[in-house]
Amino acid sequence: MELMKEKDSRFVNLEKKIGLFVVIAIAGIIVAIFLLGVQQDIFTSKTTIYFIAPSGKNINEGQSVKLSGFKIGKVKKLSLDDIASVKVELSINTKYMKWIKSDSKARRTKEALIGEEIIEITPGSINAKKVEGQGVIDYERVKELSEMAEEIQAEIKPVLTDIKQIISYINDPKGNIKQTLGNIQKLSEDILVTQKHVDTLIQNTDQNLKSTITNVNTLLDSAKTTITNTDNIMKKIDKDIPGIMEKANKTLENVEKTTGEIKKITEQAAPQIPPIIEKGGNIAEGTKDIVDSVKKVWPIRSLIKQPEEKTLKVDSYE
């Protein structure tokens, strides 16, 4: 073997060659890992700030933190403090810290109706002090779906009670409305009697006024018909109103029941909605990532036109 090495020129410095090759390969791997790290923001400078939430419900480690729609960091850690409140530790890209002021507020929100649950930080006022590392910002609690349903029910309930009272008042036999209807009926009966007296009086008047009287009679006949019709209508109304009132009452009861059922359904469905929305959000985000990645792959990227800003064309003739 020693002889072979000495005689064959290709094996001269073989160890050095292999060594050099391995060094180049390792350097390449390190560069690749470094580039991946840069792409994943591992080397970006981060600043840690806190907020205290009454509950850690729907706040998770790794959850996105956004400001004005831009991702500026993520939830780093959750821990319980001495009074059982949740201390949420946020890792924010230092370059975005300039927008986080002492009056900025953190709140849990969704990106859309079907969207990822995120922590949103409101930009503070211009004059407020900047929050430094390890600083604390306020937490703003956002209402849950079931709480909102309860509020709506609480607002609707008195209105329904009022409507019920109004209907009872209309339906009351001793109430003003019922009594007014009775008076109208009595008045129409009196008009009938008066009309009979007028008929008798007219029969005793002068012969010359016969044609006039005939006309008046015709007029009175039509008045009589009208009054009779009115009387009938009144009787019908009087007869139908209790039924209508009863139906209205039942309808209102049904509305009340339905509202209660809606509240129950909402309460039952509420815990299921956030995970579904979260899953949907994850899928959408994953799809976007895939599409974005595919767009960057050669030769697809050469086929996709880069978006650009351009000036509006101002016509020289207009």
Binding site: I18, F21, V22, I24, A25, G28, I29, V31, A32, L35, L36
Partner: peptide
């Protein structure tokens, strides 16, 4: 040696 080297070159190119 050559195979991992080719893999590395390929990955660097894709990356």
């Amino acid at each position: 040696l050559l195979f991992p080297a080719y893999c590395l070159l390929f990955l660097t190119g894709c990356g």
